[in-house]
């Protein structure tokens, strides 16, 4: 396997992501494996950089669209799931994240995009789905030893309401869990209001799905210190 092959594969993969062409993206992954690229290299040299360059908006002057975000993350998750069992040794898990949409919120797109990004970066994800009660976030984090709870909200009232992140923060405080579990939020309302995450009691928010792994990694590090 040569550096030239990696660069060629990454370039072709990026083009397929930009064109939202899933079939071609998956075919490029398969061709790379057929050309003896290791599963580890496919993930860390093609799929993850592809996803991060795509979602980070580094391959176009135009802003990247949600459908491109969605597809890049979806393919990353699918390929990661398929190739992880083929790794020569089990990868180190970077941390565990319990994720879901806030109570009363039935919009799962943002959560899905972030989940794909985190899984490809070797975080273990406990996906609680949509419309999640605040108590359930705490319960799942305790059951799985998660360092981070991630709450996605599409609507202002589910981001700021009494049964959303604010309640999760209250429960963390009441149960003395604030040093053990960090809270991150994301979703449309936070993009319109950069300080909203503080007002709902979160430790952090990520501007893009691509930046989520770094922000979550920093939170995991804080907890583990």
């Amino acid at each position: 396997m040569t550096e030239a092959l990696v660069q060629h594969t990454l370039g072709a993969y990026l083009k397929a992501l930009f064109d939202t062409d899933k079939a071609t993206a998956l075919r490029i992954v398969q061709e790379a494996l057929d050309n003896h690229m290791t599963p580890e290299s496919v993930i860390f040299d093609v799929v993850v950089p592809g996803m991060e360059q795509m979602i980070g908006g580094m391959i176009s002057d135009n802003q990247i669209t949600l459908s491109q975000h969605f597809l890049a993350s979806q393919i990353a998750e699918e390929v990661t799931d398929r190739l992880l069992p083929l790794f020569s040794s089990a990868p180190a898990i970077q941390g565990t994240v319990v994720i879901g949409t806030s109570f009363g919120d039935f919009h799962g797109l943002g959560k899905k995009i972030v989940t794909g990004c985190l899984r490809a970066r070797m975080f273990q994800i406990i996906d609680l789905g949509i419309n999640v009660a605040p108590e359930r976030f705490i319960e799942a984090a305790l059951e799985t030893g998660a360092e981070v709870i991630g709450i996605s909200s599409m609507m202002v009232h589910t981001a700021t309401g009494d049964r959303g992140p604010k309640k999760v923060r209250q429960l963390l405080r009441e149960q003395g869990l604030e040093q053990k579990i960090r809270l991150i939020v994301g979703g449309a309302p936070y993009r319109f209001h950069e300080n909203l995450y503080r007002e709902v009691g979160a430790n952090a928010w990520a501007d893009t799905a691509a930046s989520a792994p770094a922000v979550v990694a920093a939170l995991v590090k804080e907890v583990r210190q």
């Binding site: 009363g104 919120d105 609507m155 009232h157 589910t158 309401g161």
Partner: peptide, 12 residues
């Protein structure tokens, strides 16, 4: 349809 006290109804 899921109603809230402080925001628009949602699809359930």
């Amino acid at each position: 349809i899921i109603y809230a006290d402080d925001g628009p109804p949602n699809i359930g």
